[in-house]
Design a protein around this nucleic acid. Structure first.
Lengths: 197, 197
DNA sequence: AAACACCCTATGATCGATCATTGGGTGAAT
DNA sequence: ATTCACCCAATGATCGATCATAGGGTGTTT
């Protein structure tokens, strides 16, 4: 298991970001957070650095950390990188078709039930499966470091972004994998770039 | 400017890794490094975490950090991801042709002079230019986080890897960018994957 | 009033010390 | 000899305190 305290703190701050407790531009003062959680400054500091690596907060020396001012341009950069990574993944390996179908079905259900969180979750899981199936652990870790799920939540909150993920969009991809279409990479890429509008 | 002490320490440890002072599997004991550099444990710890993010060291809770045992498989994963990122970059933007030619010329010179370090440096700079020209800052930062230059040095040391970067390989790419070949992305990708053998 | 130097507070950066875990060593029980 | 419980040193994780910097406020000079 990883270092519990630091991870716990990171998780809490993360939830604060997703829930909107902290808005873009807000300062994240190490000592205040430490005091609130009744821990010392050190693990908070480490947690903030991890969030910085996820590009959710930004900081400069001696001036502390603050919530990044996300823009649509940021979002579009994320989608471009993500599209490239998933295209690479799709070329490298064939995902488990049953897993993809399972995620698609759950996405359908979540959409029917109107559960936003579940739609995000299963939509992300669908794509994660493709990346994981590449067999390239580095690729997966880079993809995960993009923090797709958090970015999706944040952008829904800030930009009132539509939730593009809809189950029907995913079926052509599953079919392309099924028939081992060599063009599946391009298909995946275009699918993702379609979200970026 | 970034936090000097932590960055300084990271740089020193990095040099120790590249120079072979520490070999794969060696432990990186926070207090020993701190004592040697006459700083406290805290900034060393932060520096090690950054190196962990670069996947140069690995650590587990309460068990400390050690130099990763790089394998050829790791290297191949890096090349695959890198190839995908640079393909994406090449599609997104057109690099400054003069800059590319400058790097190619310097690569030639370094090869003629037999300077390994300079060959690595200019070879990496050539590719970095392509990524930077994409205009996607995230893409650049992800690419940089792969630590290509360090990996190249390390793999030369550990695997006695050949230095594949040779200036002639780069000219077709420059030409493809010059004629705005829509296939330049594929070309770049294949160029990089050619290194991976 | 404007410009400027100074001081003061908040806070990040760093430190030295302590807490807590891991892994190895030791010796008794079998 | 093997197994296992226990102890201990090394060291990572965390803490509380101190150092150093950035920015804002204040008063003085012009």
């Amino acid at each position: 298991m990883r270092s519990p305290l630091r991870d716990q703190i990171r998780q809490l701050v993360l939830e604060g970001l997703v829930s909107g407790r902290w808005a873009p531009g807000d300062r994240l003062v190490e000592r205040r957070i430490a005091a609130e959680l009744e821990v010392s400054q050190a693990p908070v500091r480490e947690a903030l650095r991890e969030l910085e690596a996820l590009r959710l907060v930004e900081s400069s020396p001696n001036r502390g950390a603050r919530v990044r001012a996300f823009t649509r341009a940021d979002l579009s950069e994320v989608y471009q990188v993500r599209a490239g990574l998933e295209e690479t993944a799709a070329r490298l390996g064939a995902p488990d078709l049953e897993a993809l179908e399972r995620h698609t079905a759950l996405l359908h259900e979540a959409a029917a039930a109107g559960s936003l969180d579940d739609q995000v979750r299963h939509g992300v899981a669908f794509h994660r499966e493709i990346v994981a199936a590449s067999g390239n652990g580095l690729l997966l870790s880079v993809w995960e470091s993009l923090g797709i799920e958090v970015w999706t939540h944040v952008s829904i909150r800030l930009f009132r972004a539509e939730l593009h993920e809809n189950a029907a969009d995913h079926e052509p991809i599953v079919e392309a994998f099924r028939r081992r279409d060599p063009d599946v990479g391009r298909l995946v890429r275009e699918h993702i770039l379609g979200y970026a509008d």
